[in-house]
């Protein structure tokens, strides 16, 4: 069905090109100085070219509306994936509770994304699926599609959301039959087998920490993680605190409470998005970054 829409687009693109070329020739075909008497206005002609575009427009609208209905109307028996968007990463929760930063879907299965945002507007955009829908805080918006071809596609955020708007892109994996189940079980075993540091690194990359925190000592939107363990850091309110388990946990859950000066207070809370195990992993990972 996306290809039908694409066909529509191509058809009109050809139409437009034709018009443009036609007009161009028309404009250019009498340069120089050619004085000629000319007809005045012609009502019949003008009415014609009022009516014809009107008719074309009606058809265009109907076509577009039909296409739109096609992919907004509810599919039978969809797989519902919960999506949480925040600055600047995506979190997908699959029906069995598994969470991942990339989108994994089985081919041929109608998907319904139930989306919401933690902070500002984002927009779920997979160009290959021809779908886009803004993600609004405190509200659910939905998007539906049925992946038809296995492969890896791009998922963008299409609604401007701040500094790392352009980095808020992840991958969509359309799995062949059985691939999706394999992903779920691998994911489950992976999280069991990872050491705390590995878990931390995994969280760092997949939950968007990487967007604001470096691990090489250079400051980004937020302070770098390198070498802060057990250091004394100054807080925005002037007090000093030691970076320990508690401080890191607090910073993940309530980032603004003990914010560091010189960094914008833009970090969202990760409460509810990270398990205890994952937080412990982050702490362990930071510890390892000496």
């Amino acid at each position: 069905m996306f290809y039908a829409v694409l066909g529509l687009s191509i058809f009109f693109f050809v139409g437009i090109t034709f018009f443009v070329v036609y007009f161009t020739i028309k404009y250019r075909h009498r340069p120089g100085h050619k004085a000629q008497p000319s007809p005045a206005h012609n009502d019949a002609m003008e009415i014609t070219w009022t009516v014809i575009p009107t008719i074309i427009c009606v058809f265009l609208f109907l076509g577009g509306w039909k296409g739109y209905l096609e992919f907004t109307s509810e599919k039978s028996n969809p797989m519902v994936i919960d999506v949480t968007a925040q600055k600047w990463h995506w979190n997908f929760t699959y029906p069995d509770g598994t969470q991942d930063g990339n989108l994994h879907v089985p081919v041929g299965q109608p998907i319904r994304m139930r989306m919401t945002s933690v902070d500002v507007l984002h927009s779920f955009y997979v160009p290959a699926f021809r779908v886009k829908q803004d993600v609004v805080p405190r509200r659910y918006t939905y998007v539906q599609f049925t992946p038809t071809r296995p492969g890896v596609y791009r998922l963008y955020c299409a609604e401007y959301c701040g500094d790392d708007h352009s980095q808020m892109k992840v991958k969509v994996f359309v799995h062949e039959a059985g691939g999706y189940e394999r992903f779920l079980s691998e994911k489950a075993s992976l999280s069991q087998s990872m050491s705390p540091e590995e878990t931390g690194l995994y969280v760092y990359n997949k939950k968007g920490c990487v967007a604001c925190h470096s691990v090489d000592g250079s400051p980004k939107v937020g302070p770098s993680w390198k070498g802060i363990w057990n250091e004394q850091v100054k807080l925005a309110d002037g007090t000093t605190i030691t970076v320990d388990d508690q401080y890191i946990k607090d910073s993940v859950l309530e980032p603004q409470k003990q914010a560091r000066p010189g960094y914008p207070p833009s970090m969202p809370s990760f409460a509810g998005q990270l398990s205890e195990r994952e937080i412990a992993g982050v702490i362990a990972y930071i510890k390892s970054l000496k």
Binding site: T84, Q86, N91, T116, V118, D119, P137, R138, R139, Y140, T141, Y142, P268, S269, G272, Q273
Partner: peptide, 12 residues
């Protein structure tokens, strides 16, 4: 009907 009045903001 898609607005979630019941949850505090910031909740996913």
């Amino acid at each position: 009907d898609s607005i979630r009045w019941d949850v505090p903001a910031g909740t996913p």
